[in-house]
């Protein structure tokens, strides 16, 4: 029996940290949040990264247009833009173009892998720069909609129509393995133990494969396309948006969520827009379409309010590596950081 807290009922009595949030005026819709140590960096929808340390903000223009994708590993932030470039930005704010698409197509997917490898895609082509600086490319059967590095081994998952492809960029002689399932697969993620691959689909469902034997998993019941997901600390649960509650699929056994029910927490009248799992604790930050933002403890469903509802949908969330600070942004250029 799970305790399901209803956000709107509990709002009055909810423990709130809202007055401890340091507000940041982003000036532009926020599409990503990353950290350099304790400095939150907001990825803006257009052109710039906003380094928002306590002393004030620093805007670093990195693209000549919209920013379509970002990834970070604590050492650098990589961004892809509609100017057809892939840009890497360091903690100092120094940045450089790592690659440009020769046809100026949008660089709309990026991923960072082990040892500082970076992957990106434009159209149907996925590229990888490995740690030696060698570039490898792979043409997917249709436009690349998602990229993810495997947690172990130098392997990249590429989501596209009718499935996902697993590619070893350094092993030219190994034929990429295609996992097929009809439909349009969008984002892609490996479970932290590397045993499962999960994609979000155009329909309001997730698809999954157990990599050992290719067993299919279908996770459905959402009210909208799932646009945000993340693994809880230790990989016990896959936390997902796309419903009027936080949906947590159990991945702790060898069968993952097969034949099991998800845990359902943080119910609201508004849809969950973004989730971000705490890097160390079984806690998930949940941002809603009505602008509300809460922290949810998985164990008992207890919630703490970070932002009251009202205003634009939460569009980006991110934790620092230590799990001491949460950054958030909205579609209407509001942003903030909370030291937990």
């Amino acid at each position: 029996m799970y305790r399901v807290g209803h956000l709107n009922e509990l709002q009055g009595t909810l423990l709130s940290l809202a007055d401890r949030v340091r507000p940041v005026n982003a000036g532009s819709p926020v599409v990503g949040v990353h950290f350099f140590t304790a400095t939150p960096v907001f990825v803006l929808g257009e052109e710039a990264l906003l380094f928002a340390d306590e002393g004030g903000g620093k805007r670093v223009a990195v693209h000549a247009g919209g920013i379509l994708a970002s990834a970070a590993d604590g050492k650098c932030i990589v961004t892809g833009g509609d100017d057809g470039t892939l840009v890497v930005t360091e903690e100092s704010g120094e940045h450089r173009v790592l690659a440009s698409d020769d046809k100026k197509r949008w660089v709309d997917q990026v991923a960072l892998g082990p040892d500082g490898a970076v992957a990106w895609s434009a159209g149907k082509t996925a590229h990888v720069l490995n740690k030696k600086g060698e570039r490898r490319s792979y043409d997917a059967p249709s436009t690349v909609a998602g990229l993810a590095f495997a947690p172990k081994g130098f392997r990249l998952a590429i989501a596209h129509y009718n499935g996902a492809t697993l590619w070893f960029p350094n092993a030219v002689e190994v034929k990429p393995e295609m996992l097929t399932w009809k439909g349009s697969h969008l984002s892609v993620a490996f479970s932290p133990d590397g045993k499962f691959l999960v994609t979000t689909m155009q329909e309001p469902t997730l698809h999954g494969w157990r990599l050992a034997d290719g067993q299919h998993m279908r996770m459905s019941g959402y009210s909208a396309r799932v646009r945000s997901l993340g693994w809880t600390a230790g990989g016990e649960f896959l936390a997902t948006a796309g419903s009027e509650q936080l949906i947590l699929w159990p991945f702790d056994g060898k069968d993952g969520p097969m034949g099991r029910q998800p845990r359902i927490l943080a119910r609201s009248e508004a849809r969950v827009a973004v989730v971000a799992c705490h890097p160390r604790q079984p806690v998930v930050a949940v941002g809603y379409a009505d602008g509300a933002l809460v922290l949810v403890r998985i164990e008992d469903g207890a919630m703490i309010e970070v932002r009251k509802k009202g205003g634009a949908p939460v569009s980006a969330l991110g934790w620092d590596a230590a799990g001491q600070m949460l950054g958030f942004g909205t579609e209407a250029a509001e942003a903030g950081a909370l030291a937990v």
Partner: peptide, 21 residues
Amino acid sequence: VNADEEVFEMNNGCICCTVRG
């Protein structure tokens, strides 16, 4: 913006339900 007109069928059992991904 250049598009590549990628049409695919929705997985909703409706064969004419195609969208431009």
